[in-house]
C-alpha cells in the first residue's frame, strides 16, 4: 500500500504530476467535486494542529469525500496505551485513507507499515511534514514559474525546522539551486542535512548569521518560527526567539520579484506590516497546501484502487 511519509517518497516526476493536478483543480474545481464520493479520510491528530487538520478536511470535502477522526490524543485509545499499529489497523476498517499527525518521530511510518490503507504523514514531531513541502513547492512553482536556477534563503530555526529540512531535500533534486542558510549559531542546519543532502549533491551554499547581508541575492526567502515546543529549556527559547524579525525596512535591498514564504503559524518573525508587500506569499502557501493535499489524496486513493 502506497503511503507518503517523507517528501522523498515522491519522485520529482510524481511531484510534477501532483503540481499539474493541483493547478488543474485550481482551474477546474467542478471537475474534482465528486472524485472522492463515498470515500472517507481519517484525520488522526495525536497532537493538536488546527490548520493542517482543517486543510486536510477541507481538501477531502472539496473532493466530495467525508471525514472522520480526532484532534487530540486525549480523546483516543492512545491515552489508554493503545499502540499506533493497533490504532491504524482499527481505522483501516472504517476509512479509505489516513492523514496522521503525531508528536513522536516515525509514528506515521509505523502506521504505514501496519495499515491496509494509504497513510499521509501530516507531521511527526520535528521530523517530516511532506504535505507542507508540497504546499511550498506549488507556491514556488506558481510564483517563480520554475524549480531550477533559484537562490533560496532559509532564515531562523534551521536546526529544528522540519519544513526547512524537507524543502532542502526536495529542492536539492533540481539544477542550479543555491541555498543561503541564515540562522543564529545555536540553530544552524544540522550537519547531517548539510553533508548528506547539500554537499552530497554538490549544491552551492552559504551560511551566515546576517539576513541583511544576503537579502539582495535571494529569489526566495523562507522564514521560520523558533518553535517553543522543540525546546526542553525555556531560557534558550526566549533567548533565540527574536533572532530575526522581518520588517519592511529590511526588504529595501530585496529583489522586486523575490517571494517571502513562511510555513505559519508565525509569532513575531514577520512583522504584520510585511503582509501588504506584494512579495509576501505565506497566505497563498496555505491555500496551495489545500490544493496539493487534494492532489495527493486523489493520487493515493487512485493507486490504492488500481
Amino acid at each position: 500500500m502506497r503511503s507518503v511519509i517523507d517528501i522523498l517518497d515522491l519522485t520529482t516526476q510524481e511531484i510534477d504530476s501532483l503540481i499539474s493536478t493541483a493547478e488543474d483543480i485550481i482551474e477546474n474545481p467542478d471537475k474534482y467535486a465528486h472524485k472522492c464520493e463515498r470515500k472517507k479520510l481519517a484525520t488522526l491528530f495525536f497532537e493538536p494542529s488546527t490548520r493542517t487538520r482543517l486543510s486536510f478536511e477541507s481538501a477531502m470535502y472539496e473532493l466530495g469525500g467525508q471525514v472522520i477522526g480526532f484532534s487530540s490524543a486525549s480523546s483516543t485509545s492512545a491515552s489508554k496505551g493503545e499502540s499506533v499499529a493497533d490504532t491504524v489497523q482499527v481505522i483501516s476498517c472504517y476509512a479509505d485513507i489516513i492523514a496522521m499527525r503525531h508528536p513522536k518521530e516515525g509514528a506515521p511510518l509505523v502506521a504505514a507499515m501496519n495499515a491496509s490503507i494509504p497513510v499521509i504523514n501530516a507531521g511527526d514531531g520535528g521530523h517530516n511534514h511532506p504535505t507542507q513541502t508540497l504546499a511550498d513547492l506549488l507556491t514556488i512553482k506558481r510564483e517563480k514559474g520554475r524549480f531550477n536556477n533559484l537562490t533560496i534563503g532559509f532564515c531562523g530555526d534551521l536546526k529544528f525546522g522540519r519544513t526547512v529540512h524537507s524543502l532542502i531535500n526536495a529542492m536539492a533534486r533540481y539544477e542550479g539551486i543555491k541555498f543561503v542558510l541564515i540562522s543564529p549559531e545555536e540553530l544552524k542546519l544540522p550537519g547531517y542535512v548539510k553533508k548528506d543532502v547539500i554537499e552530497k549533491n554538490n549544491i552551492e551554499y552559504v551560511q551566515t548569521t546576517s539576513l541583511e547581508e544576503v537579502m539582495s541575492e535571494l529569489d526566495v526567502l523562507y522564514m521560520t518560527r523558533v518553535q517553543q515546543e522543540r525546546f526542553f529549556n525555556e531560557e534558550d527559547y526566549l533567548r533565540l526567539r527574536d533572532s530575526y524579525i522581518l520588517e519592511p525596512s529590511k526588504l529595501k535591498d530585496a529583489k522586486e520579484d523575490m517571494i517571502i514564504m513562511h510555513p505559519l503559524p508565525r509569532v513575531n518573525e514577520i512583522s504584520v506590516a510585511v503582509d501588504k508587500d506584494k512579495r509576501a506569499c505565506y497566505f497563498k502557501q496555505v491555500l496551495n497546501g489545500k490544493y496539493m493535499r487534494m492532489a495527493l489524496i486523489l493520487k493515493l486513493l487512485e493507486e490504492a484502487q488500481a
Partner: peptide, 13 residues
C-alpha cells in the same frame, strides 16, 4: 536513543 522517537514510547516495536 532519541527520546522523541516513536520507539522510545512503544517498547514492543
Amino acid at each position: 536513543k532519541n527520546p522523541r522517537c516513536i520507539s522510545s514510547t512503544e517498547q514492543e516495536l
